[in-house]
Write a protein that binds this DNA or RNA. Structure first.
Length: 283
DNA sequence: CGGTTTTGACCCGCGC
DNA sequence: GCGCGGGTCAAAACCG
């Protein structure tokens, strides 16, 4: 198996600013933050579920086959605000509505008043939605994205997703799919598309923070689980996630956090269970 | 029957 | 102001 096939790129996108960073490569215009993460950045990643254990495991590193490290972009003030303790819901509990997070509040936009003609309901809903949407846009959730080599687009990540849209992408033969977390209280969204230049690469973008745990078992994912079985497992180094600690050297690898991992075979359910349990213990 | 996917229509921001 | 592209909605179809 080619090492190239396991390469992963990583991107953060905050307030519209984004940079893809290749393994071991400095983001343009921000070379000083390439190889280490600040506490803030670690916080961002942990908010996306990347609570990595501090220890490194040589056996896992071997199994990973030697991925190169990737880098993170410096997070902006808006992310710090979004992820600050007062704006963060307590772990495992639903997020509280806030001006920063208007869409978390009860789904009034999808509960139009009954007894009105469709057109009236729609226009009434539209006017109220406009303000909400505007607010939502103003306080856009931080995004995090990564590229993986995979035959399947929708990679198993431990959460359940409902597809709510698909669009063609300009200058790309491949469509982009839009998913929402099926948990009604969770506002996390995910975009999945194939790289137009390299169809074997899947670009997955997460937006928002889960306000609940991932599923304790993979049993509910039979379909995506099976579909994912042909995907390449992918990994990244955990060394970048040591706050203020520069990457010492490439070559120490850990598997991706469980809910982003691709099970090697459909029959490996127990393995996944183990991983997920470990992750939940970390919470 | 309930949950998910599909898909065309619609909205909105942005660049020209 | 207009057109384009990204993102979302929602009804219908599909599926287990």
């Amino acid at each position: 198996m080619m090492e190239e096939e396991k390469k992963i790129r990583f991107k953060t996108e905050i307030s519209g600013e984004s940079t893809w960073t290749f393994p071991g490569e400095a983001p343009a215009g921000n070379p000083t933050t390439t190889y280490s993460l600040t506490d803030r950045e670690s916080t961002i990643l942990s908010e996306f579920g990347w609570n990595l254990p501090p220890e490194s495991d040589d056996r896992t590193q071997e199994a990973a086959g030697g991925l190169k490290p990737f880098a993170l972009q410096e997070a902006s003030d808006s992310t710090r605000r979004l992820l600050s303790p007062q704006n963060r819901p307590p772990s495992g509990s639903p997020a509280a509505p806030s001006p920063e997070n208007p869409s978390i509040s009860s789904n009034s936009s999808v509960d139009p008043p009954a007894g009105q003609p469709e057109s009236e309901r729609r226009s009434a809903a539209e006017t109220s939605n406009k303000a909400k949407k505007k607010k939502q846009k103003q306080c856009r959730q931080p995004r995090i994205a990564f590229m993986t080599k995979s035959e399947v687009e929708h990679l198993e990540d431990g959460y359940r997703w409902r597809k709510y849209g698909q669009k063609g992408v300009k200058n790309s033969p491949f469509p982009r799919s839009y998913y929402r977390c099926t948990n009604s209280k969770c506002i996390v969204k995910k975009r999945v598309e194939r790289c137009s230049k390299d169809p074997s690469i899947v670009i997955t973008t997460y937006e928002g923070q889960h306000c609940h745990h991932s599923l304790p078992s993979s049993r509910g994912f039979a379909r995506t689980h099976d579909a994912a079985s042909s995907a390449q497992p992918f990994y990244f180094s955990n060394l970048q996630f040591q706050p203020h600690k520069p990457v010492s050297q490439p070559g120490h690898w850990l598997p991706l956090p469980p809910h982003f991992s691709v099970p090697p075979a459909p029959t490996d359910e127990g393995l996944l269970d183990d991983i997920v349990l470990r992750r939940m213990q970390n919470r």
